[in-house]
Simulated assay, not measured.
Amino acid sequence: MTTKIALITGGYTGEAEVSFKSSDFVYSQLDKNKYDVYLITITKENWYHVTDAGIKIPVRKDDFTLEIDGHIIKFDLAFILIHGSPGEDGRLQGYFDMIDLPYTTCNALTSALTMNKGYTKALLQDISSLHHSNSVMLREFDRENAKQVVEQKLKLPYFVKPNAGGSSIGMTKVKEASELQDALDKAYDAENTGKQVLVEEFIVGREFSQGIFRNSAGELIVLPATEVKTTREFFDFEAKYIPGLTEEITPADLTDEQKERSVRVLKEIYLRLDCKGMVRVDYFLESETGNMYFIEINTVPGQTAQSFIPQQVRAYGMTETGFYGELIEASLRFK
Rank of each mutant, 00 (worst) to 15 (best):
A225T: 13
T226Y: 03
E227N: 14
E227I: 08
V228E: 02
T231F: 09
R232L: 05
F234K: 06
D236V: 01
D236K: 07
E238R: 15
E238H: 14
K240C: 02
I242H: 15
G244T: 11
T246D: 14
T246L: 09
T246R: 12
E248H: 12
I249A: 12
T250P: 08
A252T: 08
A252Q: 01
D253R: 15
L254K: 04
T255L: 03
D256E: 08
E257N: 14
K259E: 06
E260Y: 03
R261A: 11
S262V: 00
V263H: 08
R264Y: 01
V265P: 00
L266P: 00
L266Q: 09
K267V: 01
I269N: 06
I269E: 01
Y270M: 11
Y270D: 03
R272L: 11
L273Y: 00
D274N: 15
C275F: 11
C275R: 07
K276T: 03
G277L: 05
G277C: 10
G277W: 07
M278C: 13
M278V: 11
R280S: 05
D282M: 11
Y283G: 00
Y283C: 06
T289K: 14
T289M: 13
G290S: 13
N291F: 13
N291P: 06
M292Y: 01
Y293N: 03
Y293L: 08
Y293I: 10
E296W: 08
I297P: 04
I297E: 04
N298F: 05
T299V: 12
V300T: 10
P301N: 03
P301D: 11
G302L: 05
